[in-house]
């Protein structure tokens, strides 16, 4: 036994092995649950926790795409209307008879993918800063949806398949949570076990170095933005299934929480560093925080203030930049 341990050449220190942001975020989740359970024992019931996971699943899927883009050192501000576009297009396809019902989910995702492709090509090949181009693309997507829907919430309702994965559950387990687990598993595989994932981390650290190492950086960036667009639209499809139909500006409430969840999970907004486990923690943390604040019947203004203060406080704990030397 002792011989084997001496073979290990480098031993990481306890602090190096410990992922501080992820541990802190999970610690805060436990703390929130403890505080909540003192207020009301219902907070620890499986029904409540599964309900929170279901609400968090929509944010989780959208945040997955956002995380891939943030890992590149970019940002996607077109998420709000990509979510809405995915929901509206999937509902629109449903209106076209039985064939449309089958194609609804893929069609919604495809539309989001196209938006993401547009972002990606502009960022990777035209070299427009992502903050600007995604902002403009968001305006275009909004314009497209306003022109399509006439400024009102469309009458088309979600297809049965969308309702099945968005709203229903089997044996108490909401299908949306299962979908999030599948998406999350694929994301972990993609980020840690494939060359595409390594390339994303590489580009986030230094794009020129990744390029000189033979990574097709421009194609990777386009693919990452396309993935983000597709996942945002998929989140919209699920939301439409959950609510029964699409609505104007249903995606607006997801942009800032998605960024906040990714960053609270320890992913650097400058790119190149971060784990999916952290994003899961960030999503659960934000969902729980919003839920507990509303259950405690704190007025909206108090919720906003506490929400902002907690994000700043947590980031001050572990999200600080290196000191300039």
């Amino acid at each position: 036994m002792t011989d084997q341990t001496t073979d290990v050449p480098v031993r990481l220190s306890f602090r190096q092995r410990l992922n501080v942001p992820v541990v802190t975020a999970f610690g805060c989740i436990v703390l929130l649950l403890v505080v909540g359970s003192i207020y009301s024992p219902n907070f620890l019931s499986p029904e409540y926790l599964l309900q929170q996971l279901k609400v968090g699943a929509f944010l989780g899927i959208i945040a997955t795409g956002m995380m891939v883009v943030i890992l590149l050192g970019q940002i996607d501000l077109s998420v709000p209307w990509t979510v809405t576009l995915g929901a509206m297009m999937a509902s629109a396809a449903t209106a076209y008879g039985p064939m449309g019902e089958v194609a609804a989910i893929p069609f919604g995702i495809l539309c989001g993918l196209l938006i993401g492709l547009l972002n990606g090509v502009a960022v990777a090949y035209l070299r427009i800063p992502s903050m600007i181009i995604t902002l403009a693309v968001n305006a275009v997507a909004q314009g497209l949806m306003v022109a399509y829907s006439g400024g009102f919430s469309p009458q088309d309702s979600a297809s049965p398949a969308m309702k099945f994965i968005g709203a229903q559950s089997t044996l108490g387990v909401p299908h949306a949570v299962v979908v999030w687990i599948i998406v999350g598993g694929l994301a972990v595989f993609l980020l840690t076990r494939t060359t595409f994932g390594r390339a994303i981390y590489g580009i986030g650290n230094k794009e020129s170095a990744a390029y000189l190492s033979g990574v097709p950086t421009q194609r990777v960036v386009v693919a990452a933005f396309a993935l983000c667009g597709a996942l945002a639209a998929f989140g919209g499809v699920l939301l439409a299934g959950y609510a029964g139909k699409a609505a104007q500006s249903m995606g607006d409430a997801y942009l800032l929480p998605a960024i906040a969840a990714v960053v609270l999970g320890g992913t650097s907004i400058l790119g190149g560093r971060g784990s999916y486990l952290g994003t899961i923690a960030g999503v659960i943390l934000i969902t729980l925080l919003q839920s507990i604040l509303s259950v405690m019947q704190i007025a909206e203004f108090g919720r906003q203030i506490i929400y902002g203060v907690i994000i700043v406080a947590m980031l001050l704990l572990y999200g600080r930049d290196q000191k300039l030397r």
């Binding site: 940002i75 800032l256 960024i259 906040a260 960053v263 907004i269 400058l270 007025a299 909206e300 203004f301 108090g302 919720r303 906003q304 203030i305 506490i306 929400y307 902002g308 203060v309 994000i311 700043v312 980031l315 001050l316 999200g319 600080r320 930049d321 290196q322 000191k323």
Partner: peptide, 27 residues
């Protein structure tokens, strides 16, 4: 103060403070 002395990225820091400012306005 948050960006310079807290050394947080401006984009995240101002997202968070805007929630606080909105809360105060709503109050």
């Amino acid at each position: 103060a948050i960006v310079i002395f807290g050394r947080l990225q401006p984009i995240v820091a101002t997202i968070a403070t805007s929630a606080v400012f909105f809360g105060i306005a709503l109050w």
